[in-house]
Simulated scan of single mutants.
Amino acid sequence: MTEKQTPARVAVVTGGSRGIGFASARLLAADGHAVVICSRNQGESDTAAKEIIADGGTAMGVHGDVSDEASVGALFDTAEAAYGGVDVVVHAAAHAGLGRTSTVADLDLNVLDELYRTNIRGTFMVAQQAARRVRDGGAIVTFSSAVVALSMPGYASYSASKGAVEALTLILARELGTRDITVNAVAPGPTATELFLEGKDDRTLSELAARAPVGRLGTPEEIAEVVAFLARPAGHWINGQVLQVNGGVL
């Protein structure tokens, strides 16, 4: 890529090969970002990048594991080498612990350790690299979950991991404020992603959909619209917030 072709803005999207991450990557590319899609599956990240390129965007797929420090550093190295810098980081990769419910009394602590490694330690490592590398005026978006605010029995371990993400997000927003970098968390409600639908019967899905006044699940595209807005100049006055994007789920 020649200097003349270097994109004005560059976005790194973890978990960007499918679901909310991929929907966010597509919108960011449509807004003119060169998008670096990170997935633990190189084939999936490459396929996602090819789809964006076919739509006229600029993208590349990268293999990465957000729970591994060297892998996270290499992700940002790759983005900088390919496109000259990083302006937006969307950390959509997370442990799929939402489907594994347990009371606090009965929790298998191995589950807690898995959640910690990906949702807390992994988010912290991505946030750390973002804090070091995102150019002034950029944006960082993390992902929490509606279950934190709902305080639902059985979700203590997952909610605790996402509550840590919220705390990290709000503090990082204050630490990076002098560089005009915004940091926000998006907290989706029940959303019809492949991962969310997996293993749930029709009755369960109907019950979850009924929790929202509109009576349906959200879509990845609806969540992605909020992510893309936070990365745009129009969304730059929103900072240090946890945005509940849940259709009014109760």
Rank of each mutant, 00 (worst) to 15 (best):
E198S: 12
V66M: 10
G97F: 01
P153D: 09
S157W: 07
Y158H: 08
S161G: 09
A11G: 04
V104W: 11
D77H: 06
A94Y: 05
N239A: 10
A70D: 13
F143G: 03
S145R: 05
A173S: 11
A11S: 09
S67V: 08
L107M: 14
G138Y: 02
S161D: 07
H91S: 15
R174P: 00
A167Y: 02
L109M: 15
R121I: 13
V111A: 13
L150P: 00
G137F: 05
A93W: 04
A127F: 12
F196I: 02
D68K: 13
P153V: 04
K50Y: 01
T219I: 05
K200Q: 14
A127M: 14
S102Y: 06
A173D: 06
S151T: 09
G64A: 14
L150F: 12
V89K: 01
D113A: 15
V104T: 14
Q129F: 00
A160N: 03
L107V: 06
G84M: 05
T182R: 13
S45G: 05
G73A: 12
T142S: 13
A74T: 13
Y158T: 09
K162G: 10
I53W: 03
S39K: 03
I20R: 02
G248L: 07
A34G: 09
V249K: 04
R9M: 08
A59W: 07
L195D: 11
T123Q: 03
D108E: 14
S102W: 06
L250K: 12
V165F: 01
S45H: 06
V12S: 02
M125F: 08
A149D: 13
V249A: 13
E114N: 13
D46E: 15
A93C: 04
I171P: 00
P7S: 13
V89T: 13
A192Y: 12
E80A: 09
L107T: 10
V66A: 08
V90G: 00
D180H: 14
G247A: 05
P220T: 08
A30C: 06
A49W: 03
T6V: 09
V245C: 11
G199M: 01
N119E: 06
L170C: 02
D87Y: 06
L150S: 10
G215F: 07
